[in-house]
Amino acid sequence: MSPEQEKFIKKIKINKLKIMLWQFLIIISFFLIWELLVNVGILSAFIYSSPSRIITTIVGLIKDHNFFIHIFITLKEVLISFIIGLSLGFIIAIILYEFKFVAKIVDPFLTMLNSLPKVALGPLIIIICGANTKSIILMALLINLIVSVITIYNGFLQTDEYRLKLFKTMHANKRQILFNLVIPSSYQTIIASFKLGIAQTLIGVIMGEFLVSKQGIGYLIVYGKQVFNLNLVMSGIVLLALISYLLYKLIVILEKKLLKHL
């Protein structure tokens, strides 16, 4: 490696470190200022809780063994609805792609469903499915399914026209075109839809837990509100932030693994 190259690489590394340092500083000062404002009495500890109180609450939850149960329940609901939503979205996108006429017919309905605030359907879902996990999963499913269908279908439509022409000149049949060209071409979009999908699913699950659940992080928050334990509410929010970040990171890692040749 030439000295210039080494310098260049070093510069990139230092820059990355600087960014991480800033992010770390922002988080630390955010929590410190929060703690300080509460301790000095500018913010009410009752309403705003404080980082130390949140830590105590979370430690308490861990001691009760409830901590892992709540996290596990929420993650389970997220995973189930995410996987169902994705697979179903994938299948529906294929059907729409293969039958363009159907796609044209359902287009306005999809748009409508997409912009409809699904939370409005909550009460209806509960009446139909009962106040249980099924409702939560259905709620999350409704939210992520439409997004998956639309993004994956649009990915299919963006298949390169030259490649399509190539396959046609090779006399490939519809199935070969779909599996050897259209779907692999859309890897990137499909993974991008994972990112959107996981965030949407989390929204759906928490909304569902707000409405019906007896367990899960959404429940912790609602329960905390009911008994005016704002420490619990804040702890729930912090946990949610952590979980959503971790889930997102997981997908980014997956993305790097799957798309390394593209």
Binding site: D160, Y162, R163, K165, L166, T169, N180, P184, Y187
Partner: peptide, 13 residues
């Protein structure tokens, strides 16, 4: 017959 196009139309995956 075989067709060769302006784009190489290779499949990157």
């Amino acid at each position: 017959m075989a067709y060769m196009l302006q784009s190489d139309a290779l499949l990157p995956w």
